[in-house]
Design a protein around this nucleic acid. Structure first.
Lengths: 144, 144
DNA sequence: TCATATTTTGGAATTATTCCACTTTAGGCC
DNA sequence: GGCCTAAAGTGGAATAATTCCAAAATATGA
C-alpha cells in the first residue's frame, strides 16, 4: 500500500524513518531546498539531524528516486524523479521556479553534439529570467 | 592601445588596478574560479582584497564584459565574454571543463519555448559527464 | 586642484554543505 | 523472537564560497 517502502527496498536502501519522511515531503512539495526538506521532515518525524537529511537526499539521488537541481548561486533543490524529465525557469530576483517541459524534441536540448571522450553525459538546464511580478515591482534595487 | 582601459570606460566603469588586473587575468585563462582570479591578480598587482575580486567580477559580469558560469556544486567560473556563446562540458570527478559550441542551431538550445511571463531569459547549460581519464582511472571510489 | 561618488580594504558573518568519531538501528539468520 | 553486523543516524565542529559592513582610498570631471 505504501509505495515508499517498496521504492526504497527496490532501490536497495533500508527503510528508515528519515528516508520515509523525506520521500513523503518530496511527494507533497516541488523543488524544495535541503533546509525546507529538513524542516518539513522534522515536523513529521520529530528530530532528524541535518546530516541525515543531506545523506538521505544524496542517497535518494544516487539511486535515482530523487532529482537534484542545482541552480546557480541558490541552494540545491530536490524533487521526485517520477515527475518526468523537465527543466526549470527561475526568477533571478525572487527565485520563483517554473517547471518547463522541453518542447524542442528530446535529445537535441539535452545532449551535446560531441562527447569529447566523456561518458554518462547529462544536463540539467536552468533558465534564468525575471518574472513579471519582479519586473513590475516599483522600487526594486539594481543588481549591486 | 590597451583595450582594457577602453573596454572598462565604454562600459561606464572606472579604470582601477583591480579591474585591469582581473581583465588581464581573464584574458589569459579560461573558465577560472574567483579564487584563481584572486591569486593571479595578486601576483600581478600586489595586494588585492578578496572582496575587491568579487566586486570586480560582479561588476564586469553586470556590464557584460565577463561571463559567469555556475556549475552545480562547484564554485562559479569566469571568462571573457568575447569568446562567443558556448556551453560547457564538465567532468563530475575532476571538474575538467571543455568548451562546447552549441551545434544544434542557435535558439532552440538556449531559449525555452514559452516565457511564462519571464523576461531576459538566458541559460548557461553545463553538461556533466565523466571524462576518459577519470573513467579509466584504476581504483576510484564510488560516489559515497 | 578639489569635491564627491565610486571603489577598495579588512575583518567578521552567513550559508550551504561536508567531515568525523561515536551511537543507534534495520533486517537477515539461527 | 532475539542477536549480529553492516548500514544509517547523531552532534558538533570544520570548510568553502561568498557577502556584509563601516571606514579609508581613489578615479573622474568640474
Amino acid at each position: 500500500m505504501n509505495g515508499i517502502h517498496e521504492q526504497l527496498r527496490a532501490a536497495g536502501l533500508r527503510v528508515t524513518s528519515p528516508r520515509v519522511a523525506v520521500m513523503e515531503v518530496l511527494g507533497e512539495a516541488q523543488h524544495v531546498s535541503a533546509d525546507t526538506v529538513a524542516k518539513a521532515a522534522r515536523s513529521r518525524t520529530g528530530a532528524v539531524s541535518t546530516q541525515a537529511i543531506y545523506n538521505v537526499l544524496s542517497d535518494l539521488v544516487s539511486v535515482g528516486l530523487v532529482h537534484r537541481i542545482e541552480p546557480s548561486g541558490s541552494p540545491a533543490l530536490y524533487e521526485l524523479s517520477t515527475r518526468g524529465t523537465h527543466h526549470h525557469l527561475m526568477c533571478r530576483e525572487c527565485a520563483k521556479v517554473v517547471d518547463l517541459a522541453c518542447e524542442h524534441g528530446t535529445d537535441p536540448c539535452i545532449m551535446p553534439p560531441k562527447k569529447h571522450g566523456f561518458s554518462d553525459i547529462e544536463a540539467d538546464i536552468v533558465f534564468w529570467g525575471t518574472c513579471r511580478e519582479c519586473r513590475t515591482r516599483p522600487n526594486r534595487s539594481t543588481n549591486r
